[in-house]
Design a protein around this nucleic acid. Structure first.
Lengths: 346, 346
DNA sequence: CAAACGCTGTGAAATCTGTCACGATTCTCC
DNA sequence: GGAGAATCGTGACAGATTTCACAGCGTTTG
C-alpha cells in the first residue's frame, strides 16, 4: 500500500516538473529533482519506482513523460470535483488559490450558511446555501470536500458530508473529526503548526549549536587540499549549506579546488581560476562578465538576493553555475568550510 | 530528541484539554483523551510521558495540571511573537484565525508589498510595508514567521526572514524552500493535501471493500453471544465504527449484550433491557425518556444528527451513553456487526 | 483486610519511513 | 567495438514512530 507521504511528495514532484517543463527542461536526473524538492535522490528514485515510471540511465527521467505518469497515478483520468464548505476568509483564500489552477481537481461548489453569500460566485465558484449541501453533493457525485468552517461546526458538517458520499476531507478546523476509518482526512491544523514552529524556534539556538558540532580548528590552509580531494559537486555543497541553485552549471558537474570571496574586480582578475567558486555580495552583470572572462565555473551570491533576470539569463547562456546563499559572505564561507571539514573527517 | 509529530500532537492535546476544562472536566483517562484526539491510548500515555507529567492510576490525569505541564513544555514562559508576510486572502484568514486566541504565540506584525494595505490594521494586527520587514523583524526579535505570499516570492521572502533572524517558518506557498537546515520549516501545502485527498478518495471504494473483508456469513444469531463474550466497551466500539460520544455513560464502562435498532416506542418497551444498546433514527427527548424508563445504558443516533441541547442535557443527567454515528441505521448496525465478527475471529 | 480491578508508566516488539549500496543499463569517447 | 562513466532500480539496512504487554499501584468491594 502506498503511503500518504508518498502521495503528497508525488504531488510536489508533479508541480516542480511542470514548472521545469515550462522552462523547456526536457529531462532531469534524480538528484536534480531531489534538490528542487528538498528530498534525497534515493527518495526520488524510490517514489518514481512505485508509480512504475522508468527513467533511462544517462538521460535521467523525461520530464514530460514523468508528469504524465504521475498524472495517471494520481488519477488524471477524469476530473475530480471538490466541494468547499465555509466561505469565510479562509474559504475564499482556498478558492482563490485553486481558481487559476487547471489541475485535475477543481472546486465546483461552495457552501455557507450566510444567505448573503448564497447564490453568488466567489472567485468563479458558485456558492450555495448549506441546506442544499447534502443533496447537491450527493447528486454531483462529489467525493472530496474542503472544510473551512469554524471548529464547533466542523463535526456536524463532516458527518453530513460523509452521509452525502464524501470519501476524503481536508479540514482546516482545529478539532479532530470522528469519522468512519475508511474516510480519508487530512488536517491542516494551523494552530498546531504555529505552536510547533514556536517550540522549535526556541530550541533553535541550542539545536543549531549542536548541529554545527565541528571544532573550529585552524586548518584554513588545508581548505584547498580538502577541496581538491573531495570530489564533491558544487550542487551537493549548495544543498548542504542551504543555498539554492539558480542556474545549472556545466554538464557533468562543476569541479572547484578554490573558493574566492570578494567583490573587487581587480582582485578577482588576479585570483580567479577555472576551478574557483566565487562568493560575492555583488549580484551584478558586471560580476558575471568577469566570471566569464576568467572562465569561473560557479558564483555564489549571498544574503538571499534575487538576481536580476538579466543576470540569470547571462549565467544560463554562459553555463555558469549560479547559487544564492541565504546567509552573508562570512556565514556562507563558514558553512562551506564546516561542511568540507566535517566531510573530510568522516 | 522530541519529534515534530509529537509536538504537533501536544498542541492538539492542550486545546482538547482546555475545552474539556471549560466544561468542568477535572480528570481524564488516557483512553478518553485518546478518543477525543483520535489517536491510541498508548500514544497518549507515551506523549505525556515525554513531557514528564504523571497521572495517577484510577484517577487518570488531572486536566488542569496537564494543561500546565504541556504549556511549560511547549514554552508558556514568555510570549513568542510571530510575523506574517503576505496579507492576501490567506494571510487575512490566518490573522483572523489567531485574532481571538490569547495563546502564548501572537502575530504582532504583518507585511505586504501593497501600499494600500500598509500602515493599516488588519484583524487587529498592524500591517507594514515589506521594505521595512527585515529591520523590524530583527529589531523586534521575531523568530517565527508565517509565509502567505505567492509561490514565486516565497524563496526570496524566506531568505530575507532568515537573514533577519527568523528560526521557524510556516509556509503556505506551494514550493519547497531552500534554507539552512537549522531552520524549522512547516509546509501547509494545500495543493498536495487536495491531491492526496483526491487520490485516496479514488482508492476509497476499493480500499473500504478490502477493509471490510469479512465474509458475510449468516451468523446473525451469534451476535448476542458475541457481544456477551466480548468484553468490549461501548466507548471502544464507538471509536471503531466512527461514531462520536456525546455524553459519557455510567462510570466503569457500559456493558451491553444486545443491540436493538428501531424507532417504535412500543417495540422498544418490549425489547429493551438494561444491557441493550439502542440504535435509533429518532433523536428526540421522547426516546431518552423511554430509555430511562427501561434503564437502557446507551443510545446511538444515526445520520450524524446533532441532538438538541435538551436531549444532551437529559442524557447527561440520566447517565445515558449517547453516541452519534455518521451513517444510517443499516450501515451503523453493519459496522458494529462487522467489527464484532472481526474481533471475535482474531 | 485481602482480593480484584483498572489505570499508568515503560521496556520490548512491530511497523513504517527513509537511506545506502551495488548490480544493471545506457551513453560517450577513443 | 570496447572501456569507462554516470545513472537508474532495488534489496538490504537503519532509524524513527507506534503499538503491545505487563509490572506496579491506588481504589473499591466483599
Amino acid at each position: 500500500m502506498v503511503s500518504r507521504k508518498t502521495v503528497a511528495r508525488m504531488s510536489r514532484y508533479r508541480r516542480l516538473l511542470a514548472s521545469l517543463h515550462d522552462e523547456g527542461v526536457e529531462s532531469i536526473y534524480s538528484h536534480q529533482l531531489a534538490r528542487h524538492a528538498v528530498v534525497s535522490a534515493a527518495q526520488v528514485r524510490r517514489d518514481l519506482m512505485v508509480i512504475g515510471y522508468s527513467g533511462s540511465p544517462n538521460r535521467g527521467y523525461d520530464v514530460g513523460a514523468c508528469i504524465e505518469s504521475i498524472g495517471s497515478f494520481l488519477g488524471a483520468s477524469d476530473r475530480q470535483d471538490v466541494a468547499l464548505v465555509g466561505v469565510g476568509n479562509l474559504g475564499r483564500a482556498v478558492l482563490a488559490h485553486f481558481a487559476g489552477e487547471s489541475a485535475a481537481v477543481a472546486i465546483v461548489a461552495a457552501f455557507d450558511i450566510d444567505p448573503d453569500l448564497t447564490e453568488h460566485s466567489v472567485h468563479g465558484c458558485r456558492c450555495f446555501h448549506a441546506s442544499r449541501m447534502e443533496s447537491l453533493v450527493r447528486d454531483l457525485g462529489i467525493e472530496i470536500a474542503v472544510l473551512t468552517v469554524p471548529g464547533d461546526a466542523a463535526q456536524a458538517t463532516a458527518d453530513t458530508l460523509v452521509r452525502a458520499g464524501v470519501k476524503s476531507i481536508i479540514s482546516f478546523a482545529p478539532v479532530p473529526l470522528h469519522l468512519p476509518n475508511d474516510i480519508f482526512v487530512e488536517y491542516m491544523d494551523i494552530t498546531a503548526a504555529l505552536e510547533s514552529a514556536a517550540f522549535f524556534a526556541r530550541l533553535g539556538g541550542r539545536d543549531a549549536a549542536e548541529a554545527g558540532d565541528g571544532e573550529i580548528e585552524p586548518m584554513v590552509k588545508k581548505l584547498e587540499s580538502l577541496l581538491a580531494r573531495s570530489n564533491m559537486k558544487l550542487e551537493d555543497l549548495a544543498e548542504n549549506i542551504g543555498a539554492r541553485v539558480i542556474t545549472p552549471g556545466r554538464p557533468g558537474g562543476t569541479e572547484v579546488t578554490r573558493i574566492y570571496a570578494g567583490d573587487r574586480v581587480s582582485d578577482l582578475l588576479n585570483e580567479a581560476t577555472d576551478k574557483t567558486l566565487l562568493v560575492s555580495n555583488l549580484a551584478s552583470v558586471q560580476m558575471l562578465r568577469v566570471a566569464e572572462l576568467m572562465d569561473v565555473p560557479g558564483i555564489c551570491f549571498v544574503n538571499g538576493v534575487e538576481p536580476e533576470p538579466e543576470v540569470v539569463e547571462l549565467a544560463r547562456t554562459n553555463g555558469t553555475l549560479l547559487l544564492v546563499s541565504p546567509a552573508g559572505v562570512f556565514e556562507t564561507c563558514g558553512l562551506i568550510y564546516a561542511h568540507l571539514a566535517g566531510d573530510a573527517r568522516s
